[in-house]
Simulated assay, not measured.
Amino acid sequence: MKNVKQILVLGAIALSMGQSFGNDLNGHTLKDPNITKVTAENSKSDNNMVKIALLLDTSNSMDGLINQAKAQLWDIVNKFTHAKCGTDGRPQLQIALYQYGNDNLSFREGYIQQVLGFSSDLDEISEKLFSLSTNGGEEYCGQVIQTSLSQLDWGKNPDNLKMIFIAGNEPFTQGKLNYKDAVANAKEKDVIVNTIFCGAYEQGINTGWKNGAQLTGGEYMAIDHNREVVHIATPYDDIIIRLNSKLNKTYISYGALGAAKIRQQSVQDSNAMEMEEAVAVKRAVSKSSRLYTNSSWDMVDASKSEDFDLDKIEKEQLPQELKGKSKSEMASYIEGKKKERSDIQKEIQDLNNKREAYIASKKKDTEKGELENAMLTAIQKQAAKKNYRWE
């Protein structure tokens, strides 16, 4: 990060501290000393944000692409688990999802649909990917890029890494909106457009896909979207899957969202396992990372916040295992689950390090999934320009 920005952040923190001790802000006195800390943490988090929009062609011929996206989501998440930005810590990750080119979508909207706005809820992202189905249609690349730029909150922080990945197999030039205007708008917003043509490399060049990427400094890639992804089984897979089951038992669902979200977690585990055991393993690794957080419905994650207060939770919103317990008993129970979860997550991470070493010894880099290779290559190259590194 630039020194000037560090000075500005420190200045903002100093100003907040002054306000928290009595200065009036918009006519209200700040009495809570924790506001300063929250403000500083929010500023830091905002300075370390990765925003990725996936624009996927869901026309008839794209079943293979959608299946690869379902499988490779966890590779993208696991990649950013170990990312660092400058000296300011590790970035947060948000992913948005659009589908286009599907006859089931609205003609008036250009056969385009926002499936999910920017979200860090990994279970929700997985659920939306698994909800996609294909059908014939018109693929308007320029229009879906422009729609994602208009609808999503990309922010104005120049340190954030903002990327679009658009994948499809029809000419990039289709539709009334010129793709050059859309990518020019992306460049103004500091959003890098990466294009993934599902077909022959030269055909993608001849139909505008390479030019669409180059205009923003993005990467052009051509993949065989129907290629079957080959996963190598390892001696650690079964253990990680068993640990994932134990990990699920550390979640204490509560509130209006609790029951539905704990079911969603289980369903997405099942979806991953139905695809292939290796996908379930990758998802379990993601669940053991810092990027898998569920403070809106899980009391363990929620308790990490400084403003978490058991007294503010209505009794009817408590899970069955905490009903009738005193505040100190509840706090002790939550702390026990937190420790148990941390131990399981560490064990999964340690096993995954051995798993990755085993895989690296058994296969070449080119044997990775087509979509995975394309996205990870672009991510690492473009993240380096924003002072990201991997440790």
Rank of each mutant, 00 (worst) to 15 (best):
D121P: 03
Y140M: 06
D123R: 01
D159R: 04
S126E: 14
F130L: 07
A167N: 01
E139C: 11
S126Y: 07
L161K: 03
N160I: 05
C141N: 10
M163N: 04
C141G: 05
K128I: 00
Q143N: 14
N135C: 10
L149M: 08
E127Y: 15
E124A: 12
C141T: 12
S131L: 02
K162R: 15
F165K: 04
G137Q: 03
S133C: 00
Q146T: 11
Q151W: 00
T147M: 04
S126C: 12
G137H: 11
N157S: 08
E127H: 15
W154T: 08
I164P: 00
E139T: 11
G155T: 06
I125L: 11
K162Y: 04
I145A: 05
D123S: 09
N157L: 05
E124D: 09
E138A: 13
E138L: 15
G136Q: 13
I166T: 13
Y140I: 11
C141M: 14
E139S: 14
P158E: 11
D153N: 14
K162V: 08
T147L: 00
S133M: 12
E127I: 04
D153I: 02
E127F: 15
Q151D: 14
Q146K: 10
C141I: 09
G137K: 08
K156I: 10
I166L: 12
L129E: 01
V144D: 03
K162S: 08
G155R: 09
L122P: 00
P158S: 09
L152Q: 09
M163I: 15
S133V: 11
L132R: 02
V144I: 15
V144C: 11
G137E: 04
F130M: 09
N135L: 11
G137I: 04
E127K: 14
E124I: 10
S133K: 13
